[in-house]
Nucleic acid binder design. Structure first.
Length: 237
DNA sequence: TATGCGCAGGGCGACTGTCG
DNA sequence: CGACAGTCGCCCTGCGCATA
């Protein structure tokens, strides 16, 4: 029982509190009893681990893993490129519809992505990422609907891919270059880190990631920094 | 039979909102 | 501004299904 992490224990405590609160609101239990039941404090979370991310060189190596002469390789490259270039979440990428890819002010963007907490954002697509997308779409004959599709061993293109499959592609590609336990979210973190390292404005990085608070972005990146430049144009990839 | 993927479920880290 | 309670969704496993 005590093998569970503080995070899990706290989630459950939180659920109990809410249930007790409802019970008391509906007069099923008294105020005193409710107070007794909810006075158990959360388990303190000791130090947050920062997660994993790649250096620019590692990211380059990772992007070179898919064999882009094959159909599956073209798709896998799109997955890696969009994750590291646009910092999408796994599920956002899996669900990405071609309608989302739009031309705004003369450049390609992912328009009105709906992310965590229903927050809507628009993300610019770096040129090299768009090229990868074009190559995949042409080769696979994808013209509408989902951008990403399952590819059979025989090279046939199927309906769609789940977030799970996206994760699987990232995990396997990372494995090929000797990086263990590396998931889709780590590529999002990689993008943020590279943006900042190359002089990205933290306010812009906030928009890129779809954070509601600049504080979150700062925590994410370590510290504050004030510079200009167009963030994810400058990954140096 | 092997491959490639979907799907559900549970643990838990990442993120948000709020309060002192 | 730091700390904490609460929510969201990532990670991972096990299993089922279709196809080659």
């Amino acid at each position: 029982m005590d093998a569970l992490s503080p995070s899990t224990v706290n989630v459950r405590l939180s659920a109990v509190r809410k249930m007790v609160f409802e019970a008391r609101k509906n007069g099923m239990i008294g105020a005193e009893e409710a107070a007794t039941l909810t006075e158990v404090p959360n388990v303190p979370q000791k130090g947050t681990r920062l997660g994993n991310w790649l250096t620019r060189e590692q990211a380059k190596v990772l992007l070179a893993v898919p064999d882009r002469s094959t159909l599956k390789g073209k798709r896998d490259y799109v997955i890696l490129a969009v994750l590291v270039g646009c910092a999408l979440r796994r599920e956002e990428l899996a669900a990405l519809d071609l309608d989302t890819i739009q031309l705004r002010e003369g450049r390609w963007v992912l328009a009105d992505l709906e992310g965590k907490g229903r927050r809507v954002r628009t993300v610019a697509i770096p040129v090299w990422v768009k090229q990868g997308i074009n190559a995949w779409m042409t080769a696979a004959g994808v013209e509408d609907g989902r951008l990403l599709r399952a590819v059979t061993k025989a090279g046939k293109v199927k309906g769609s891919m789940s977030g799970w499959a996206v994760w699987s592609v990232v995990e396997q590609s990372a494995n090929e270059i000797g990086i263990e336990r590396f998931g889709a979210h780590d590529l999002r973190r990689t993008c943020a880190k590279l943006c900042r390292k190359n002089g990205g404005n933290i306010e812009q990085i906030k928009f890129l990631l779809g954070h509601s608070s600049i504080q979150t972005t700062e925590r994410y990146l370590g510290s504050e920094q004030e510079i200009e430049i167009a963030v994810n144009d400058n990954l140096g990839l």
